[in-house]
Nucleic acid binder design. Structure first.
Lengths: 208, 208
DNA sequence: ATGGGCCTCCGCCGTGCGGTGGAGGCGGAC
DNA sequence: GTCCGCCTCCACCGCACGGCGGAGGCCCAT
């Protein structure tokens, strides 16, 4: 019997999944969470084997909760449920310790298969996103996009509408340094300027 | 027997709802649609009584389909399923002819109740949004954040990293006009500049 | 100890950007 | 008819921005 936890901020999705999955004799839904905090509480009890979590949730997001679960080393395998088929998303989720990755376009059979696979200790990535993923694994398009601590801070404040001088004062550093960090952030993200950089970083959930 | 059609771009949601609702002996799911066009096709056949449709779908959105269904005068009662509890959304949906309005926070019982109510010719608005609705009916609060067509286009291109001159060429308008649109977009969004405007618009899903 | 990543800072310089204050045409709403 | 929202365009101006080419200190790994 696989003890499953569902995490999604929309109750229709949670209840729908519950009805859909409990029809399978090997699966038992032992808990539901509406956000990352609730999910972490449930996982902490240790009474579950697999968690099916939406990436996008209020407060603590699915990815943040995933990171927490992975580092804490609970014996819970997490399947990420996402709207995005971007390779970067998948890669990031897998890096953070996801055992499975499903799109919201997945059907019941595929979800059940994924749950049973990861419950058995395996990994499951939906076909439509597996292609891009292995491409990056081979190194065809490597370069994992990430920013240094300072770059992230500076870009976050830029996204909040502060100008360089204000960012400098906020962080207690010189304006020239802010420019340097922004410049390297643009380069890493392949952005033409702060607007595009903010757009890309938001999509990759590097800033909020 | 109530013949029901489900419309949502996420297959997990559709299948989940199907499993959840077909458990009720009075409800039969006779069709699923992944976008507005499919929904209109299904409704046109006339073989259904109630449609449960998500507002947000690619191509023809739920609201647009709703409008079409209402003006064409099919004998189908539409229940709108939305993430937003904004009064403006509810108001607009009801204006366009929705017989019901549910949030994604709704539980199974409430959904079933809504379906049976509208199938009987009634109207159902979820409790949590009924309050805001009457508030706006009185005129207590209004104002929703939205951008004009041009403002959205211009801001989207700005988020893609184009500079004003390039945006102007792309849209076949003058650079001054681009600046005007951007300026009014900043004002509407309460943003200090393009970076913050892009951040806000992305969060509000006004651009992608 | 040499290299590399990160953080810090500096000046220079062109220009893209955003604010201000206009103008007119078009369509729908009252 | 008159108002209002939307789209279009113009000139001016100050400055924030971003690219360039430097510099040094820190820590860690090879």
């Amino acid at each position: 019997m696989i003890r499953l936890v569902l995490a999604d901020d929309h109750r229709v999705v949670r209840e729908g999944l519950r009805w859909m999955l409990e029809d399978d004799p090997d699966i038992e839904v032992v808990g539901e969470a509406a956000d990352g905090a609730e999910l972490l509480e449930l996982v902490a009890t240790g009474d579950c084997d697999v968690a099916l979590v939406d990436v996008r949730m209020p407060g603590i997001t699915g990815l943040e909760a995933l990171e927490e679960i992975a580092t804490r080393g609970y014996g819970v395998n997490v399947i990420v449920l996402s709207m995005h088929d971007d390779a970067a998303y998948v890669k990031r989720a897998v890096e953070l310790g996801a055992a499975g990755y499903l799109l919201k376009s997945a059907g019941r059979d595929e979800i059940v298969r994924a749950i049973k696979t990861v419950a058995a200790g395996g990994a499951y990535v939906q076909g439509e996103v597996a292609g891009p993923l292995v491409r990056t694994a081979i190194g065809a398009d490597d370069e994992e996009v990430r920013l240094s601590g300072r770059e992230t801070e500076v870009l976050q404040l830029a996204a909040d509408g502060l100008e360089n001088k204000q960012i400098a004062r906020r962080l207690g550093i010189g304006e020239a340094t802010v420019k340097t960090h922004l410049g390297s952030a643009y380069e890493r993200l392949g952005a033409a300027g702060r607007a595009e950089a903010v757009a890309i970083a938001l999509r990759l959930e590097l800033i909020h």
